[in-house]
Amino acid sequence: MHIIIIDFETTGLSPQHGARPTEVAAVRIKNGQITDHYQSLMNAGVSIPAFIENLTGINNTMIRTAPPVHQVMHELAEFIGDTPLVAHNAVFDSKFLDIELAHIGLQRRQEMLCSLLLARRCYPHAPTHKLTDLIKYIGLPSDGHAHRALADVQMTARLWLHMLAHLCCTYHLSHVPLPLLAQIQRIPVHSLTRFMSHYCKGA
Rank of each mutant, 00 (worst) to 15 (best):
D82F: 03
P84E: 10
L85H: 07
L85K: 04
A87H: 10
H88P: 00
N89F: 12
A90S: 13
V91H: 07
V91L: 13
F92C: 03
S94R: 14
K95N: 14
K95V: 00
K95G: 01
K95S: 13
F96K: 02
I99G: 04
E100Y: 08
E100K: 03
E100C: 11
H103Q: 13
I104P: 08
G105C: 12
L106S: 10
Q107E: 15
Q107W: 07
R108E: 11
R109E: 15
Q110A: 15
E111K: 12
S115C: 12
S115E: 13
L117S: 15
L118P: 08
L118H: 09
R120H: 11
R120E: 14
C122K: 04
Y123F: 14
Y123S: 01
P124S: 11
H125A: 11
A126T: 06
A126I: 05
T128H: 11
K130E: 08
K130H: 10
T132M: 09
D133E: 15
L134Y: 03
L134S: 06
L134C: 05
I135T: 01
K136L: 09
Y137L: 04
G139Y: 06
G139A: 07
P141N: 08
S142Y: 04
S142K: 05
D143F: 10
H145T: 14
R148D: 13
A149I: 01
L150Q: 05
L150H: 04
D152S: 05
D152Y: 02
D152E: 11
Q154E: 14
A157W: 02
